[in-house]
Structure formats: C-alpha cells, structure tokens
Simulated scan of single mutants.
Amino acid sequence: MNDWTILPRLRRDILGEGITYNAQEGSLYWVDILGQRVNKYDLATNAYHEWGMPDLIGWIIPRAAGGFLAGLRSGFHRLELDGLARVSAVPSPVIPNGHRLNDASTDHLGRIWAGSMGMAEDGHSGALFRLDPDGQWQEVDAPYRIANGPAHSLDGRLLYHADSARGLVYQMSVHDDGSLGPRAVHITFPSEWGSPDGMTIDAEDGLWIAHWGAGCVSRFDPDGRRERVIRLPASQVTRPCFAGERFDRLFVTSASVGVDEPLAGAVFEVAPGVRGVPQKPFAG
C-alpha cells in the first residue's frame, strides 16, 4: 500500500511550486512556473480549475483584503481570479533580465518574504526581499544562486531560507523592524539528500523541507536534526503545504522538467503525523 495519493487531475505540472492553502475556501492553490499557470483544487468537492498567466509565476499568496499577491518574473502583482485572471503591478524590486522571483511565504505579521534567482542558475545574483503590508519593500539578504523557502518559526523570531545550489538551509533572526541578523547554516544537505527546496513549519515548530532530486520530504526538529522522511514516486519535489480543517494533511508539489517519470509533476498527499498551522494572508 502506498503512503501517498495524488490529486486527481489529467495535467502534470512542468515546474509545480508555491502551494498554499486558503482555509476560508477550503482550497489549495499552487503554480506551474514554466507552464505559466495557477491551479486551484477544492478539497471538499475535488473540483479543479486553472488559469493561464501572462508570464512566469513563482507563487501566489492570499490577501487579507481579498484576491492574491503574486510573484511574476517581473515582480510583485495583485491577482484576481474571479472568472478570468486579472493582473496588476504593484511597487516591487526591479528584477533584472534573466532573473525571476522563485518562492515566498508570509510571517506571523502578514509580511511577504520572497526570493529571486537567475534563470540560468549559474551565478550568485539572487536576493531575498521583504514586502510590508503598507506596500514598502526592501532587499534584506543576498546573494543567492537559487533562493528557496522561506519559512518562519512559530514565534516569528527565526527565518529559514535555503540556497538550493549550495545545499544549505540558513537560519536568521528576525528583528522587530523586519531586518535580519547574520546568516547561520542550520542544515547542510549531503549530495544523497538532493537539494533543499520549498519548506513549511508545523504546529510543533518542526521544519518540513522538500528534497529536489531525492524524491522525498523530510521533517527537521528545531535543532536541525532530520527525524522523519516520507518517500515519494517523483524525484523533483518542490514544496510542502499543510491543509484541511485540522491542518493534518500534507500536500507536496513536484516538477516534470528534465525527467521521464510517470508521476513527475503531480501533487501528492501524505499523512505527516503532525498538524500544521494556517499561513497568514498578506496583510496588505
């Protein structure tokens, strides 16, 4: 018997990422970065819907005011998905040619933390940005080759963020004004673990990380010790997300780009054995 199931849909993502749970709707949202698509799946009805995007899209995050904030290749945008997708730019960092926004999450105050990367993945020219509810943004850490994550401790005092190309997960303290303390290496991925990709926190402050190239998602305790591994039938898994009424269901996106695997690009569900916590909507 498998320890996983897949969401029932015909399509597979080229580069599935940015999965988030809208508890008010009971729906999962995630993106296909290279497929330029936003996906929605209703957990109660199994209804699936998708929207094409005008550009590469790294993530979407629900807004407290309604709709979403999205990270397109060119920067931050408001996104409305009422029937047709409507996109409008908001003030954001200038993302250089050949770069894109990659992954993001909110903290306990509803601020967005988002990383960028070079699309050729051959230089350390990516950065980490913070977007505040008042619309002001700031570059808070650099450089990165492939910025991934991020996630936050339950009390909001620690930020976890990865550079996938280096195989490192960093831990940084978060100050009251949103600035960061120095990077400290929290977890080092040996080659057999693949590369650290997207991540999330559970209700016990455990850090769940998707392993790109190693076909699994792992839980690390607050000291950085790997204490649980869930294997999946796709090598390129990208981001975990807790969902459901009790936040006891874990969904994991994956990618099919560059591999010939029957289930690559599927969204998997596994039983994590622990509950997650709701992700704060963007407060802006």
Rank of each mutant, 00 (worst) to 15 (best):
A203Y: 05
A234F: 02
W212K: 11
W193Q: 13
A127D: 10
S74M: 15
T238A: 07
N46G: 11
I187P: 01
L28T: 00
Y144S: 02
E17C: 01
K280M: 12
L263A: 14
D163W: 11
P190C: 01
A114C: 00
G118R: 14
P262I: 02
M172W: 11
W212L: 11
A44D: 14
D141M: 15
A210H: 07
V217W: 10
R239Q: 07
H161P: 05
D103T: 11
E25L: 13
D32R: 02
G149H: 10
D3W: 14
D260Q: 15
D42M: 12
L180K: 03
G71K: 07
P93Y: 00
L15V: 09
D202A: 09
A264Y: 05
S116M: 10
Q236R: 12
T238E: 07
R9C: 12
C216D: 06
P262M: 05
G118P: 06
I209T: 03
I19C: 09
A23Q: 06
A234D: 04
Y21T: 08
A283L: 02
R86T: 03
S191P: 14
V277F: 03
L72E: 04
A70M: 06
S92Q: 06
I146Q: 11
P143H: 04
F220V: 08
A151V: 05
H152L: 15
T253A: 04
A127Y: 12
G66C: 05
R111V: 02
L207W: 06
T45F: 09
P182F: 15
I230P: 07
D221T: 13
R219N: 03
R37I: 12
G206V: 02
G284K: 00
P93T: 05
